[in-house]
Design a protein around this nucleic acid. Sequence first.
DNA 1: CAAATAGTGTCTCTAAGACAATATCAC
DNA 2: GTGATATTGTCTTAGAGACACTATTTG
Lengths: 271, 271
Amino acid sequence: MDSEKEFLENYRLEDYERPSVTADVAAFMIGSDDRTSYRHDPQNKLLILLIKRGGHPFKDMWALPGGFLQKGETIEQCALREIEEETGVAPSAIMPVGVFSAPDRDPRGWIISNAYVSVISEEAVSQIGMDDASDAQWFSVSFDRSENGEHHLRLTYEDTVLEAVLAEEKVSFGRSTFRIADSGNIAFDHAAIIASALSALRDEARDFEAIFDFLPEKFTLTAFQKVQETIMNVSVLPGNFRRMISGYVEETDEYVRGDGHRPARLYRRKQ
Amino acid sequence: MDSEKEFLENYRLEDYERPSVTADVAAFMIGSDDRTSYRHDPQNKLLILLIKRGGHPFKDMWALPGGFLQKGETIEQCALREIEEETGVAPSAIMPVGVFSAPDRDPRGWIISNAYVSVISEEAVSQIGMDDASDAQWFSVSFDRSENGEHHLRLTYEDTVLEAVLAEEKVSFGRSTFRIADSGNIAFDHAAIIASALSALRDEARDFEAIFDFLPEKFTLTAFQKVQETIMNVSVLPGNFRRMISGYVEETDEYVRGDGHRPARLYRRKQ
DNA sequence: CAAATAGTGTCTCTAAGACAATATCAC
DNA sequence: GTGATATTGTCTTAGAGACACTATTTG
């Protein structure tokens, strides 16, 4: 096994005038904690898929799933293909986040990354199952703004904690990008990509449409609300939430029972 | 001057595994009509910059300004550079719209386009001036949804009318893309890029932040409102508009007089 | 019955839409 | 004065936040 230095000396993108192009995907899922009592409903967690790198550069560090654009496919197809290769599941939704093209972002050379957010429903993944020893794992996500305006991204999987610090930089059109102050041992510039992906996800989740992609076809309104709260990191009073989404969903005749409290009606997406 | 067929036979992107990467920019400006009477304020028009192609493919057709990503620059820098090369003016704002990567979108070969929206203030452009015989011209824009759900994009400059028809296709996250039904003699897939750019611009203009990029430092509230209405293609009662933006602007002590009616106070962006 | 969630109703507050009324200038 | 835009104020309405109250289940 050669050193990273040796590896980089031997690795050489030939000097054409074209960059290599990749798609990197921030794939999110909503997971559930164990329930603490027979009647207490479980808490939700926002999870993101990371891959442990097997080779140089950034060997043994965690990175977003992604890969090179191949001839004959679109960049969206590339992003979908990469997620399916890693999880065995096709994401129910995909959305572009931005293009990361700083010339020095990849030590191998001139490689630009098209970043995507994708969303996978919990039931699809649980049917596949994921090996604990696998190099692909779901990390629990927290992303908050601290007092001094810095953003702290914290990704946790069992004993592994990746904690990155990012500075938000306002650019035109009222948009913002993230500059890495501390990569927290996340490979490449992926800490910044994850921060942008979370921002994009939260922006979209405000109009409820993105939420359905996390849910099965039929769901309780409380499940809907918990997903929304997990993504947005806010909380709404249940009565008000029901009123807000009433136009987006329709009743079914089915109920969920056996949870130690009043059964909840199942709803589905309207239209 | 050889034919397009001959040109394509001689043009050959060598068969590496990497695409060529371009930035194409939809650069918008707000222009003014002539005033119809001494006391009537001029109407506004939304304008977009197009370049007449001098070479194959799509020779003599109109296209968005753009060009190839060069080593050592980011894709945003490439987009800014292309606009400045064509207009002599640096855009006051730039925003990514999407990546267009269909394998057959460019007859020269595998070329993917990073699309950007940019905004240029009228005063900057009018100082430069633009030659009527130039291959770069500002086209007036109209973009509407017809009864059957199709979108009609109409770009006009003097006698030249480009009229494209696009179908809106819903993709995940409540987003939509445009498929070209009739390119209207706009080069490449640029009709779809322009439609996406207009959608993105209208999305952003809803929170007023994007509007400031079209305006000089000091402006009247009516000028602000007209820009917003021109972009969004809606109209608001003046009294209500003033109330809505009151939090975003602050008064100056200056007034605009000489327009055949009551002078208007100049405002500036707050903060 | 207790604890938990499911579901309904109502009061308040804010922001947007409609619209009326006044102000001020160039000609 | 006339016709245009500038500016302010008020009435109404729609929707979100707060909160109280009832309903229904499991252990």
